[in-house]
């Protein structure tokens, strides 16, 4: 568990036991039992483990550290740096090349849609230092209206497909990507299916000229 105590990410949700239902007979979870979890909190120093040393070092070698890093979260023993989007490329370069950091491997880039947050689209970069056997997460937030984030393909070539996937599913535009096209969905698909406001199975299916309506429109269960 984190050094900073539990639940630092979720002050919006008071703990009400594991099942946490009140005022509703609905136990399926489909009627909006989940409440927003957005909270811009950072973990106070010291972070513990190697995190203090690494973040202090990063502050020295990376010029606009104070400006670029919005907040630092240590939760469940994992370090997350929330980065302003215009700094992500240079930060990745420093992360990769600095001899004391050496995050050579970009394990993954995933999109997350925190729909209730003002900047709801997040690109999450999981960096791995093979030299020091460390892992760290960079997180960049942006809005649906202006979903641009600089691409890190020039620093980590492996980001190519990951960024295409995040574009495909979340509509995050990675500026500077060599060929930002859909990767899993068909090229002519409309919409970004893993956004939270995109329904599951919410499209009709054409089969032999007939249309099967989406599940939520097939019949009324009321």
């Amino acid at each position: 568990m984190s050094e900073t105590g539990d639940g630092s990410l979720s002050p919006a949700r008071p703990s009400r036991g594991m099942f946490g239902v009140s005022g509703s007979s609905d136990t399926s979870g489909f009627n909006g039992l989940a409440t927003p979890v957005h909270a811009d909190l950072s973990t106070p120093k010291p972070y513990g483990s190697w995190y203090d040393e690494a973040t202090d070092h990063l502050a020295e070698v990376f010029g606009g550290f104070g400006d670029a890093i919005e907040r630092i979260v240590v939760d469940r023993g994992e370090l997350t740096l929330h980065v302003k989007r215009e700094h992500i490329l240079e930060l990745c370069r420093t992360m990769r090349d600095d001899p004391s950091l050496r995050f050579e491997l970009l394990s993954s880039v995933s999109g997350v849609d925190y729909i209730d947050s003002p900047r709801r689209l997040h690109a999450v970069y999981h960096l791995t230092s093979m030299t020091y056997r460390r892992r760290l997460r960079l997180e960049v937030a942006t809005t649906v209206e202006d979903p641009h984030i600089p691409s890190v393909v020039s620093v980590y070539p492996t980001a190519d497909w990951h960024e295409r996937e995040a574009w495909d599913f979340f509509g995050i535009v990675f500026d500077g990507h060599p060929a930002l096209t859909r990767i899993q969905m068909p090229d002519d698909w409309i919409g970004h299916p893993q956004r939270k406001d995109y329904p599951l199975g919410g499209i009709d299916v054409e089969y032999k000229g007939a249309h099967v309506p989406p599940p939520d429109e097939r019949r009324s269960y009321a």
């Binding site: 949700r13 989940a34 927003p36 892992r135 997460r137």
Partner: peptide, 26 residues
């Protein structure tokens, strides 16, 4: 409880990583 983790393991094909985010729900 709300939060996110990334858990990598060594699958037969390499690093299989699960980035799981919870909003505190079921």
């Amino acid at each position: 409880p709300a939060g996110q983790v990334y858990v990598p393991i060594e699958s037969p094909r390499g690093e299989m990583g699960y980035h799981v985010v919870s909003d505190g729900g079921t």
